[in-house]
Structures are given as structure tokens and as C-alpha cells.
Amino acid sequence: MAVSPDAVGMVLPPISMDIERGRLAAFARVTRATDPAYSDLDAAKNAGHRDIPVPPTFLFAIELEQADPFWWARNIGVEVNYVLHGEQRFTYHRVAYAGERLTANAVITDVFSKRGGALEFIIKKTAISDEAGARGRGSGHDVVVRNPGVGS
């Protein structure tokens, strides 16, 4: 298969997620977090947080908060069962907390192939903003996720 180069510049619809304490506690349990601040509100407050902090990689969940998270990949010619996650990068501007509603805005920034087309790479960048739309103001939450999928 070939990923259409027309995919470059494709803007995905924004996806919002209410960050819930229970979901963060479940994430902390399965990753066997030992710091109770990541699962217990009192422990979080005792550690100086205003609520349970969002762990560094949980932000990846926002874009998955839809019935068919990979519809966009199929739309550009990718067989999802053959997708591998190649790289993932987060840049943090502030800590996010339970109780916030965060919105992910993603755009496909590059598509290229390697090994004579045996591997195809899709680079997606996502900005995550809070309800104040803090992205771009410099004082708020602005996370950039570099998220190349690898299709083969």
C-alpha cells in the first residue's frame, strides 16, 4: 500500500477529553506507580498539587477518546493492524490535572517511505490546550506530540 502524500497537511478534527481522577488512578495502578499522588487526591494535595497530576504519557489518551481512533489512518490508505508506533515525543509547558477538559488538535506534518517503500512513515503533531485555549499564549498548556506511525 502507499500512503498518499496528499495526507501532508491534513488537519484532524479536535478531540476533547475530561480528565477524570478515576481514570488517572487506573493508569497509576496498571503502571504500578508507587507515588500515591498519582492516584489519591489527598496525597496529591499533600504533595502540593491542586488535584491528581496527569502522568507524562497519559496525554496520548486524549486522541484515542473516540469510537474509531484510527479512522484517519484508514482514510489515507493504512492497514491499521500493520501499524507500529515508531516514535513518540512530548514537550511540556505545564502540568495538567484531573478535572481539566483538554483538547487535542492534530495535523499530519509529513509522510515518507524507507527501504524502497517497505516502511512508510506518517508524522503527526498534536497540540494540546486547556479550556482557556491557552495554546499560543505562552502561559498555559501547550503540548506538542510528535507521533510518527510506521506503516508497512
Partner: peptide, 24 residues
């Protein structure tokens, strides 16, 4: 990546983290 993130948050408060990236 979450386990490795736990190594980071076990040692540093979350507001100290500036960037975190991996290659699988």
C-alpha cells in the same frame, strides 16, 4: 513509555519535566 515515565516521576516532580521522547 509509561513505565519509563514512572521512573522520571518517581525522581522528579512533574513540573520539572520539560520534554520526554522515545523511539520504539
Amino acid at each position: 513509555m509509561a513505565y519509563l515515565g514512572r521512573l522520571l516521576t518517581d525522581l522528579f516532580p512533574p513540573d520539572r519535566l520539560r520534554s520526554y521522547g522515545v523511539r520504539f
